[in-house]
Amino acid sequence: MAMKKGCTPSQLALAWVHHQGNGDCPIPGTTKVDNFNQNIAALSVKLAPLEMAELESFGADTVKGDRYADDLITWKNSDTPPLSSWKVV
């Protein structure tokens, strides 16, 4: 589909997130201007409802569960002190 849309697979993935319609905007990190420009170009990739449905069907039966294993330290199970206790230096 990326070839058909004239974009890279990464741009297609970013466009898919952007087209979810719930205000989410992906902000992938990069240290290279060329990569940043490629990411920004994803905003010009337009996806029709049928294309969105096709993309969503690709992982419907294969993507399941949480992103991280339960024993992996993430923001979900960290011991970060409450914001009210933080001191500005």
Rank of each mutant, 00 (worst) to 15 (best):
M1Y: 10
P9I: 03
A13M: 06
A15L: 03
W16P: 05
H19C: 10
Q20R: 06
G21N: 04
N22F: 10
N22S: 03
G23Q: 09
D24V: 05
P26T: 09
P26H: 07
I27Y: 04
I27H: 00
G29N: 01
G29E: 01
T31K: 12
K32D: 04
K32L: 06
V33W: 02
N35E: 04
N37C: 05
N39P: 10
I40Y: 00
A41L: 09
A41Y: 08
L43Q: 03
S44N: 06
S44M: 04
S44R: 12
K46F: 08
K46E: 11
L47G: 08
A48H: 07
L50A: 15
A53Y: 04
E54T: 05
L55F: 02
L55H: 00
S57M: 14
S57Q: 10
F58R: 13
G59Q: 03
G59K: 08
D61K: 14
D61F: 14
D61P: 05
T62F: 13
V63L: 06
G65Y: 07
G65E: 09
R67Q: 14
R67H: 09
D71W: 09
D71F: 12
D71S: 15
L72T: 15
L72S: 15
I73F: 10
W75C: 15
N77K: 14
P81E: 12
P81W: 15
P81D: 09
L83W: 13
L83Q: 13
L83D: 10
S84E: 14
S84A: 09
S85A: 13
S85V: 14
V88N: 05
V88K: 08
V88Q: 07
V88W: 05
V89Q: 01
